[in-house]
Amino acid sequence: MRWISEKYCTRGLLIMSQETSEWLNTQTLIGMTDQRGTAWHYRAEDQGSEPNHYPGYVPAADVRRRLFGWRAEAVAPHYPVPFDAVPETPADPEQPGYRLVQVPGSPFPMMADLTRKIVYRCDTGRPLGVFSSKYPVMQYTDMLLDGLAALITPDGLAVSDDSLGIGSAGLLKGGATAWVQIERPDTVKTREGVDFRSSILASASMDGSLPLTYSAVNQVVVCDNTHAWALREAERSGRMWKLRRRSVLSQLQLRDAREALDMIVEAEQSFAADIAKLCDLTVSRPQFGRLLDDFAPLPDADSGKAARTRAQAKRDQIELLWTSDERVTPWAGTGFGWLQAVNTWQHHVRPVRGDRGGRNTAYAITGKRADADALTLERMFAVLTPA
């Protein structure tokens, strides 16, 4: 408890971590490598005594042991108070407020704030978040694993194409956020040449950054880019679509493996239909130029050389993806090609601080990637079909 209080007092909760290669190779578990190969972050030298890659599904027992084998605990934050500044404490010990506590070795009395609690990892003492004293502390095992246990192949073996298992799981931000992804082993191949996988992504946090959420997500195989948007036909135009930024599922609906499988199949069918619509949307070379002007406008001369250089570099990168990159060129000249170009630039090219893969994973589980795709499509529709 003393460690927690001292860390809280001296550093607050401003502990910002970027996932290192060692973290990603020990605190994320990646399955189905026999079919899909290793993850981009794979480094055998950073995995210690136990690999984090699995030829089949990731066994649920390994997720429980390797990732969720610790508990989130809570303690009232407390801080040192000089002797001559000690206020009176509440008479009722159950009444929320402030109270003196004894901490061995402290030269000052410690004041505990009973109106709040710090949630921390019991194994490392790392603070994860500060909340009201009434905030219920839940465990990742309860939120993300036990609710899925009845839906998946527990031992990591896929019995058939209809089997569901854990494709990936992991912790980010020192354990402040976590995910478990369930999927089936096969890949969907569309008539437009887009191979993708659909899955149910269960995510939660200990720092209050996101609620327990079950989302339908899709990953395009050629680039492993994540998509979680959906299109809906608009009544006023056959060439314009309304957007649903994230396809969120109710965890209460996941009663058995058949319903979970049905949800994944529905996500596959929906995404395949969306791809067909976007591939049917022609983007001519002049339209591409207008999209590029909208996405990366060139500043005027008064903005300075640095701003123009950055904008030109962004335009050149999108142009190169559109004309020369296998992750985009099969669909160049279509709306899906434009989405792929921007999405690939955001995933793999856009400058980032710290670790790119950790950021991409965080964006997927928090819904920021879906929001970015939705904005790309909204701007594309606005440029291609002006009022």
Rank of each mutant, 00 (worst) to 15 (best):
E6P: 00
R11G: 10
I15M: 08
I15W: 14
E22P: 00
N25C: 11
I30W: 13
Q35D: 12
R36S: 10
Y42F: 15
G48Y: 12
S49K: 09
S49W: 07
P51N: 06
H53T: 15
Y54C: 00
Y57G: 01
G69S: 08
G69R: 03
W70V: 07
P77N: 00
P80Y: 05
V81N: 04
F83T: 03
A91S: 12
V101M: 09
P104N: 10
P104D: 14
G105K: 09
M111H: 03
L114H: 06
T115V: 04
I118D: 00
R121V: 02
T124A: 11
G125P: 06
R126V: 08
L128Y: 05
V130D: 11
Q139L: 04
Q139C: 01
Q139N: 04
Q139T: 02
T141K: 06
M143R: 15
M143E: 15
M143D: 13
L144P: 00
L144Q: 02
G147N: 08
L148R: 03
D155W: 08
D155Y: 05
D155I: 04
G156F: 04
V159Q: 14
S163F: 07
I166R: 00
G170W: 00
L171E: 01
L171C: 00
K173L: 14
T177Y: 01
T177H: 01
V180W: 00
R184S: 09
P185Q: 10
P185V: 07
V188C: 08
R191T: 11
G193P: 07
D195G: 06
S199R: 11
S199G: 05
L201W: 11
A204G: 08
S205W: 03
D207G: 02
L210R: 09
P211Q: 10
T213S: 10
N218Q: 15
D224A: 12
N225T: 12
H227G: 03
A228G: 13
W229L: 13
W229V: 11
A230S: 13
A230M: 12
A230Q: 15
A234C: 05
L243H: 03
R244C: 04
R245T: 09
L254V: 10
R255I: 12
A260W: 05
D262I: 02
V265H: 12
V265K: 10
E266R: 07
D274P: 07
A276F: 05
A276G: 10
V283Y: 12
S284Y: 12
R285L: 12
G289L: 08
L292P: 02
L292Y: 01
D294Q: 15
P297T: 06
P297W: 02
P299R: 11
P299Y: 13
A301I: 13
S303L: 08
A306P: 01
T309E: 15
Q312C: 02
R315L: 01
Q317Y: 02
W322S: 03
S324H: 14
E326K: 09
V328R: 05
V328Y: 10
T329V: 15
T334V: 05
T334R: 08
F336W: 15
W338A: 11
W338E: 03
L339S: 03
V342S: 02
W345A: 11
V349W: 13
D355L: 04
G357H: 14
G357K: 03
R359I: 14
G367S: 09
R369V: 09
A370H: 06
A370G: 15
A374V: 01
T376S: 15
F381C: 02
F381D: 08
F381R: 06
A382N: 10
T385A: 09
P386T: 09
